[in-house]
Design a binder for these strands. Structure first.
Lengths: 112, 112
DNA sequence: ATTCGTTATATTTGTTAGGACATAACGCAT
DNA sequence: ATGCGTTATGTCCTAACAAATATAACGAAT
């Protein structure tokens, strides 16, 4: 039986968390549904939690990550900015690279 | 202002956590003090929590990580096995390498 | 003006993780 | 045989965190 190695990475901007796995999931769901409330439903989390996460993301990012609109056709909605899309892609890439890197490093332990 | 990247890594053995940062801290403190209760004190955690962590480590490891003795001179004590020492060293090395790797990867985001 | 679905926010309720406390068992030393 | 400091566990309580509920504000469309 071999050990497994797992990891969590996140990106901070002066003490505040900008992105982590949960926030990236949320951003992807927003991209797919066009709405924060729909995104929360697909992720099975409360709207409030989703809103808090998104709020925190936008407050700690250098540029806006989403554009949120209240009222209007369909009641409003949320969508990713180009910057937001780039962040999601970059995070996914880093995360995937990290997994591969760690899997190699794990030999140091499985060979003990 | 640049973003920072942070990470947590841990090693699992069929669903159970074997090692993480907290457990490695504990093992190091045991190595230094020769006792689980003293280690708990230096880490400012309760003895019970320390014991639960250590118990979980030993239960999920392939070979014993510590030798614990009850009673006798000084009341007993705990010390790392050679396997335990190797695990701690390997974990530290992997963790350090991971930080360096991620710092390089972070450019993907800071350049956006 | 009213309806609609959304964003935005406060308040209350529930749940779970951790801390505090208590106690037993052990074996060496005196 | 008694005391000592440790490992080993169980029980209770609380405090932090998450979930549920409620409500306001908004703007387009009818």
């Amino acid at each position: 039986m071999r050990y497994k190695i797992k990891s969590r990475i996140w990106i901070e901007s002066e003490n505040n968390v900008l992105l982590g796995e949960g926030r990236v999931h949320l951003l992807k769901a927003i991209q797919e549904t066009g709405s924060l409330s729909k995104a929360a439903k697909t992720l099975n989390i409360s709207y409030k939690k989703a809103w808090q996460m998104l709020d925190s993301v936008n407050k700690s990012a250098k540029k806006p990550v989403t554009i949120n609109s209240i009222g209007g056709k369909g009641g409003g909605g949320a969508e990713l900015t180009e910057y937001g899309k780039s962040l999601v892609m970059a995070f996914d890439e880093i995360n995937k690279n990290c997994w591969e890197f760690l899997d190699k490093q794990l030999d140091k332990i499985n060979l003990l």
